[in-house]
């Protein structure tokens, strides 16, 4: 596309291209800078894994807290236990099972995806897909009823391009833009 809006890089009045490019690079710079904090060494240490696991186990005596967040004695002991099992080479699943055997399912911060608890995970999927499905069907039905009742619709040109043309006219780049349009259509 030779000219219209974003990429116009020639001519002194070709405002969007150059400046968008500048602001974009500025933005990227800021982003890259803040991303600096997110570059980490690739392998997760056992300690990170221990924290992650601790965040998935509830503290049995504190209402609604995981052992990662709690400072209760039992939470401290359980954290040590997690660490011990990790050092012994257990997998995350092993460790979760270890605690389920001792404290019951309640110890898991998120129910397992099996048996009755599968419901906990399926229902959200149904809700989301169902919701989107209903929305799309609603739009489609309304659209069809519009077609049937043949309400006179707007001119082919839509609102946005009219707006853009007006901008062009104000900027004095309208001719140029129109020409290139013609050249392409």
């Amino acid at each position: 596309m030779a000219s219209r809006y974003p990429f116009v890089l020639s001519g002194s009045r070709a405002f969007p291209g150059k400046s968008i490019a500048i602001s974009t690079s500025l933005f990227l710079l800021v982003l890259a800078f803040s991303a600096g904090g997110c570059i980490r060494e690739e392998d997760i240490t056992l300690e990170q894994r221990a924290h992650q696991l601790a965040g998935e186990l509830m503290c049995p005596v504190c209402e609604g807290q995981t052992i990662d967040g709690s400072n209760a004695q039992i939470a401290q002991d359980m954290r040590l236990k997690v660490r011990e099992r990790l050092d012994a080479g257990d997998t995350n699943a092993n460790i979760r099972d270890y605690f389920v055997v001792r404290y019951g399912e309640e110890i898991l911060a998120a129910p397992k995806g099996s048996g009755f608890n599968l419901l906990a995970w399926i229902v959200p999927v149904v809700i989301v897909l169902g919701g989107i499905g209903i929305a799309l069907t609603m739009i489609n039905n309304m659209r069809k009823s519009t077609e049937r009742s043949a309400v006179p619709t707007a001119p082919a040109e839509d609102d946005l391009s009219m707006y853009l043309e007006q901008v062009d006219k104000d900027l004095g780049v309208a001719d140029q833009a129109n020409q290139s349009d013609k050249a392409h259509s």
Binding site: G55, E56, M58, G64, T66, G104, E105, E106, I107, L108, A109, A110, P111, F116, N117, A120
Partner: peptide, 18 residues
């Protein structure tokens, strides 16, 4: 879960995040 099968479960951050 309590009502349906008399088993207590917890639903906390890891569930909602996912």
């Amino acid at each position: 879960s309590d009502l349906a099968r008399d088993v207590s479960v917890s639903v906390s951050a890891p569930y909602f995040d996912r």
